[in-house]
Design a binder for these strands. Structure first.
Length: 749
DNA sequence: GGCGTAAGACTTTTT
DNA sequence: GTCTTACGCC
């Protein structure tokens, strides 16, 4: 006992529940770790514990959700163990699989220099295939096909194993495209994101000896965010842990928000089915949020039916009650939040401790504009990922081709970028040669004398060829990534092209290119031993959250999805309206509604000290004003755990938008929510009117009223709402009284 | 073949 | 309001 205490445990600060989970050694373990209960701490402590008990750090397989989480875990483990975690298998599922595949993919017919295709490359390839097979995009959209393919890969079903249904020419067509797509990927020596998982499983499944080697090699399997794993990931875990059963999974079913991309909450709820004799642990003590925020969070998630029983608690009581604000429109919402942030920043709060969260990326724009106007520093995390920007992809396509010459998609990206007078016809001519010689486009270019081409293209093709001859030569001599990139951009004339244009757009592109050069320069210095492939892999598998550098003074703007795993002192959740949160696409289906609710819950539980939610009456969408009603997630939440504030102000007085205000006055706001089942709709809509319409229509701060007994007065404060609404009124005789709005005999002045 | 303009789709969320 | 694609002119 004393031994262990003086050992690694003595240095790990853990509560008793956490400690139990860390020291258990009896087989499969599942830890339900609610938001803010020290999940990362337990995971890291477990690793430290395992290593302390004699395991080799490089023989653990620890899968996390984001590279950021992986990095954090690595550095914490390094701290505990006081040794480098460099060769440890800690990373995202995708990067761990890529690493394994780079070693072993020869067995499934890939070179270890294979490219990783992002969704953009995927789209381009699919479009090409559909052109070839003559599939009309109006019958089957690329989106549909992509989700069909992804859906199968997430469940580890290659084209050959798809159950062919007896009916459906339509599905027959999808299977054929899927099949052609896989063939083409193989030809291009490329894998998409989903392939990284599926191919790893197929590889291990088809090579029992290899599987056994890895089962023996990895002494422990650890998984973070288990609730977000899909079938392919589950299969991988079962394969790897199949022999010894040493799996340690951590997750929280209440935070499962990736069902739409194949994650199955069932994986965590039926864990014992996959790993019998599992021991379950629960972490329920929250160290992050105030009591008020937790009360709100618990009330929100209580509406979900499919969840494991648990309840977060904290020994920190009180804190400021959660505020739910109502605004006129999205512009009003943005500027009110901006003002509120300004005020907070005058106190002891820094912008970097604040986050504004929203459901869709499109919502970020208005905040961006407002913050610029009010001179509030901000950072947007997410949106179009840096590595998905077209100029960045263009630049990287040159490097990708150096690593994998078979990557025709990259070739097609840049053969005429910048313009060299080579168009579709020129590409056709080159393709012709490539298929005759059975080579890739780049190789066809390199073995063909430009003189063979039509005069019109001679110059362009020889320029391109010289460029690649030079770059290939450089690459073989071991020139570093940033130098190669810089050279490609200079010699190709891409830089000149951008510098010559003086538009806002070209300048921002140039900025991105320079940022890319900068990033690669730093990367080269930090990773002296690594090659081009390694850089490209990191670049494609990086998320924007990974690139996110929190700044002390900059307010963080991001989607609710991106916010998972993060925490902030102050959190604003904007756009809590039906159709937005929950998203209208998901409002018909109970299971999807529950996922949306969990998404809201994830947002709520990011807050440490203060949480502000808001909804608006009207929002611009597609440049059109749309009427909105508050989210059911707000309405169904226990009214005693938050304040409702109507911030719409002087409506009916200074009419900047007459129609709108007239409408409000004549027909007191009714919230009809057509997208909720009939019964509930009636009940909720009625209670909403009852509870808030007075608040909404009759009283506002600064308003003058007349009391039957006390005479004229001014409302200086309003608290509570509905039947509980209290008014603080300063009467003309100087007295200040708090009145229950419901009973006070008041008349408007 | 390149470039500009107009019409159309589009917004859920991401490794 | 923004991005992508299609078409027509140079």
């Amino acid at each position: 006992m004393i031994d262990t205490e003086s050992g690694i445990l003595g240095r790990l600060v853990l509560n008793s529940a956490q400690r139990e989970a860390v020291v258990y050694e009896g087989g499969p373990q599942l830890v339900f770790a609610g938001a803010g209960t020290g999940k990362t701490r337990v995971l890291t402590a477990k690793i430290a514990w395992i290593v302390d008990r004699g395991a080799s750090p490089s023989r653990l397989f620890a899968a996390t959700f984001t590279n950021k989480a992986a990095r954090e875990m690595k550095s914490r483990v390094e701290n505990y163990l006081n040794r480098s975690a460099e060769n440890m298998w800690i990373g995202t599922f995708h990067s761990l699989c890529a690493r394994l595949l780079r070693k072993e993919c020869g067995r499934i017919g890939f070179k270890n220099s294979f490219s990783i295709f992002d969704s953009n490359d995927q789209t381009m390839l699919l479009r090409k295939i559909m052109q070839r097979t003559g599939t009309n995009e109006s019958t089957v959209s690329i989106r549909t096909i992509m989700s069909y393919i992804s859906g199968h890969k997430n469940r580890c079903i290659p084209p050959g194993e798809v159950q062919r249904s007896r009916y459906g020419i339509y599905e027959q067509e999808l299977i054929e495209i899927y099949s052609a797509y896989q063939e083409e990927l193989h030809k291009l020596q490329a894998m998409d994101f989903d392939d990284l998982l599926m191919n790893t499983v197929l590889l291990l499944r088809e090579n029992p000896a290899l599987l056994e080697a890895y089962q023996t090699y990895f002494e422990y399997i650890l998984v973070d965010e288990y609730q977000d794993t899909n079938r392919a990931q589950l299969l991988l875990m079962k394969l790897l842990a199949g022999r010894h059963g040493r799996i340690f999974a951590v997750g929280d079913d209440d935070q499962s928000i990736y069902g739409w991309r194949g994650a199955q909450v069932e994986n965590i709820l039926t864990f014992e089915h996959d790993f019998p004799s599992v021991k379950i642990f629960k972490l329920e003590q929250n160290y992050r949020s105030s009591g008020s925020i937790l009360a709100f969070a618990n009330s929100v998630i209580a509406s979900n039916s499919r969840r494991s029983a648990k309840r977060l608690w904290t020994d920190r009581d009180g804190g400021e009650r959660v505020t739910v604000s109502r605004y006129r429109d999205d512009r009003h919402e943005a500027s009110a939040i901006a003002e509120s942030i300004k005020k907070l920043c005058q106190g002891n709060i820094r912008g970097g401790e604040i986050a504004v969260l929203f459901r869709t990326n499109a919502q970020s724009r208005i905040f961006e504009e407002t913050f610029i106007r009010l001179r509030i520093p901000y950072i947007i995390v997410g949106g179009i990922s840096f590595y998905e920007r077209s100029e960045v992809k263009d630049a990287l396509a040159y490097i990708r081709l150096l690593v994998n010459r078979a990557d025709n998609i990259s070739f097609e990206r840049i053969y005429n970028t910048p313009p060299r007078g080579l168009g579709e016809k020129a590409l056709e001519a080159l393709s012709q040669i490539a298929s005759e010689k059975k080579t890739s486009l780049l190789d066809a270019l390199l073995i063909t004398d430009p003189g063979q081409f039509n005069d019109r293209w001679k110059k362009g093709f020889s320029e391109l060829r010289e460029l690649f001859e030079l770059l290939i030569d450089e690459a073989e001599r071991g020139t570093r990534v940033h130098e190669l990139l810089e050279e490609s951009l200079k010699i190709s004339g891409y830089m000149d092209l951008l510098s010559a244009q003086k538009t806002e757009e070209s300048e921002s592109r140039l900025e991105n290119i320079n940022e890319l050069l900068n990033t690669t320069r730093i990367w080269s210095n930090e990773n002296p031993g690594k090659g081009l492939e390694a850089f490209l892999e990191e670049a494609t598998l990086a998320t924007d959250v990974d690139r996110w550098v929190q700044r002390e003074d900059a307010v963080n703007l991001m989607t609710l999805h991106s916010a998972k795993g993060l925490e902030f002192r102050i959190v604003y959740i904007a756009g809590c309206e039906e159709g937005n949160l929950p998203a209208h696409q998901n409002s018909g289906d109970d299971a999807k509604i529950e996922e949306e609710r969990r998404l809201f819950y994830v947002g709520v539980t990011r807050a440490k000290e203060k949480l502000f939610c808001s909804f608006v009456d009207r929002r611009y969408r597609f440049g059109e004003l749309q009427v909105r009603s508050p989210s059911r997630f707000i309405l169904e939440t226990d009214p005693s755990v938050y304040y409702m504030k109507d911030e719409r102000g002087d409506f009916g007085l200074h009419q900047e938008k007459p129609n709108y205000f007239q409408l409000q006055e004549k027909a007191p706001v009714r919230f009809v929510r057509s997208d909720i089942p009939e019964k509930r709709d009636e009940r909720k809509a009625a209670s909403y009117d009852e509870e808030f319409s007075q608040d909404v229509v009759e009283y506002r701060r600064g308003q003058y009223i007349k009391h039957k007994n006390y005479g004229r007065g001014k409302i200086v404060d309003i608290s509570g709402f509905g039947n509980d609404m209290k008014l603080t009124v300063l009467f003309n005789d100087g007295t200040r009284r708090r009145l229950m709005a419901k009973f006070a005999p008041l008349v408007h002045e």
